[in-house]
Write a protein that binds this DNA or RNA. Structure first.
Lengths: 337, 337
DNA sequence: ATGAAAGCGCTAACAC
DNA sequence: GTGTTAGCGCTTTCAT
């Protein structure tokens, strides 16, 4: 293994000079720099991560805690994770992947050992058990998601309340009066995941203001569960002409079911979804949707975190404004007989 | 920050004793051990990762390289990644997440800096550009996927050739004679990803042996692309009665399209898919499928790697045997007029 | 069964 | 602009 000292010797300079060439923390004459850089290349030198972390108290690693539940809104999570990884690398950081499984212990382990300089938490619950620990630590962190109390925390999330409101508005403008919300799986609500509850809240509030009737049903997703949900909806509210789909794995089944039932989209029924663009555009009907900007969320989270690590910027809640894209699945409400 | 020396002082022992209590590398009297453990708890001591890595030349970190392409067979990748992370933790390792983006450079960076003790590569191409580097390194590694030449490498993968063969056999047994393969996106073949080509190979070989006629069409997935593919298939081979779907994002669209065309599944057309269990069971028809055992692949990869790190076991190719589960989408071929 | 002490490779004062 | 050097916190011989 090539060490910094060997590089120094090879270049005929002191080890600190090599170190400073690497870090750029003090000015080096061009000739010296070139000599050092050449030695580095020739010897194939790579700084030792452990030694560097020990000496500098910085690992240049960001921990990313992703939910263990692999069965839920997976594509979005993956997209965020990859965006975080890419963004982190762009700032010189590597990503340590933690699964939610370990829970708060993982936070302790990572902060305690200095394994990571900072952390990003995904899938934050409204009253997340990891939050007290974060508040009590020096370690900078950013949440992707929004807990009930954001005091002392930095959060990045789509403004799901506005998202819900936007969906309600869109359907209201088209003349729909009876709206059904195909929600997330019951477990998501039981865990009090912020985004699900906020979306619903935005939906309900705006619906009330606009005089819409709203029916909300959690839905596991998949064909059978969606079929059951749909049957219940039309049973209880036959007049329903607008759907807001929150669980993306219920989207395609819903469209297929409506088709089977002879309900035309968007002539008889309008459908609006909250999902990644890809899902909306690849479905059997181009679906009017509010995109979950996974990439941007990941990118912004890293930016916030790097800002904190560099001592700039404090706690802040970044809520991304939702954008609704009208596609082929929504249209004027059918004329009532 | 609490250091090992502080623990030692608090417990009234030398620092080496504390170190040995932690590592268990030499016998300690019960009384001493208890005193030390108590001090550790009382002081809230956490070993410093950097120092440990420097002194022991082991980071207890495994690097995991996942493909950057977030749009492809994502759920499987995510499932594998999470399984790897969980498995690694169970063996005392953390996971460093690398995106394929950096390519071979990431391998150099990680091996050179001692950031990770070993690495797991996903999404391996038949002639992957990272392989020469791996062969030339001391760093243990495991591939998830199978390159063309496995000499000197350890690989874990589903036996995709057998998977293809299994699908062909199943349809042949049911009396089907004209089979169409809805393949992966063209880009997947262009990159010469092993699993796609092997599946096709297994399919073709067995089909020939069984006297089946086989039509293979790459397919981007999504509704429109699948519709186009389906149209071409029936155009060229109107007699087609069996489908093997390899691209999971073409599965639900295919089922919906067949339904729309009035082709009953499985009475008129049989469908067999290669996909995760969840996709097969949540589709609009319970789909006969060969499961991609993502969890087990991740688990096995970690086991292989830990074995290597512990000096046991050498290079090995672990091919998991495919299992076909018959569900509602496949049945006897329709009687020809 | 325990201690003492020599590094591991790098960073960052402190010198000049 | 460059060199010298004292640690960073831990592991691991070598002693006893």
């Amino acid at each position: 293994m090539v060490t910094l000292a060997e590089v120094a010797q090879h270049a005929g300079v002191s080890s600190s000079t090599v170190s400073y060439v690497l870090s750029g923390k003090r000015s080096i004459s061009t000739t010296t720099r070139q000599r050092v850089e050449e030695s580095i290349r020739k010897l194939g030198y790579h700084p030792n991560a452990g030694a560097r972390a020990l000496a500098s108290s910085r690992s240049n690693i960001i921990a990313l805690m992703v939910p263990l539940r692999t069965d839920m809104y997976v594509p979005v999570m993956m997209e965020i994770a990859v965006a975080v990884a890419a963004g982190a690398r762009a700032h010189g950081y590597d990503i340590l992947l933690l699964t939610g499984e370990e829970g708060p212990d993982a936070v302790r382990r990572v902060t305690g050992s200095g394994l990571a300089d900072a952390m990003i938490l995904m899938d934050v619950e409204l009253d997340d058990e990891r939050l007290p620990l974060l508040r009590g630590t020096q370690q900078p962190s950013v949440l992707i998601g929004l807990p009930a109390d954001t005091e002392g925390l930095t959060c990045v999330d789509l403004d799901f309340r506005a998202t819900g409101a936007l969906c309600a508005e869109h359907l209201a403008e088209l003349g729909h009066r009876d709206i059904a919300v195909v929600g997330e799986a019951p477990a998501v609500y039981e865990r009090h995941t912020g985004f699900a509850e906020r979306t619903l809240d935005g939906l309900r509030t705006r619906a009330r203001e606009l005089g819409l009737r709203l029916l909300h049903r959690p839905c596991e997703g998949g064909y059978d569960a969606t079929a059951a949900t749909l049957a219940r909806v039309f049973d209880e509210r036959p007049e329903t002409s607008g759907f807001v789909v929150q669980n993306e794995s219920a989207l395609e089944p819903l469209l297929a079911l409506l088709r089977q039932q002879g309900r035309a989209v968007p002539e008889d029924v309008s459908v609006v979804a909250v999902c990644p663009e890809q899902v909306a555009t690849q479905a059997s009907v181009r679906v009017t949707s509010v995109a979950v900007p996974a990439q941007e969320m990941g990118r912004r989270a890293v930016e916030q975190l790097v800002g904190k690590l560099d001592g700039l910027g404090g706690d802040e809640v970044v809520l991304l404004a939702p954008e609704l894209t009208v596609r082929a699945s929504s249209g004027p409400a059918p004329v009532r007989p």
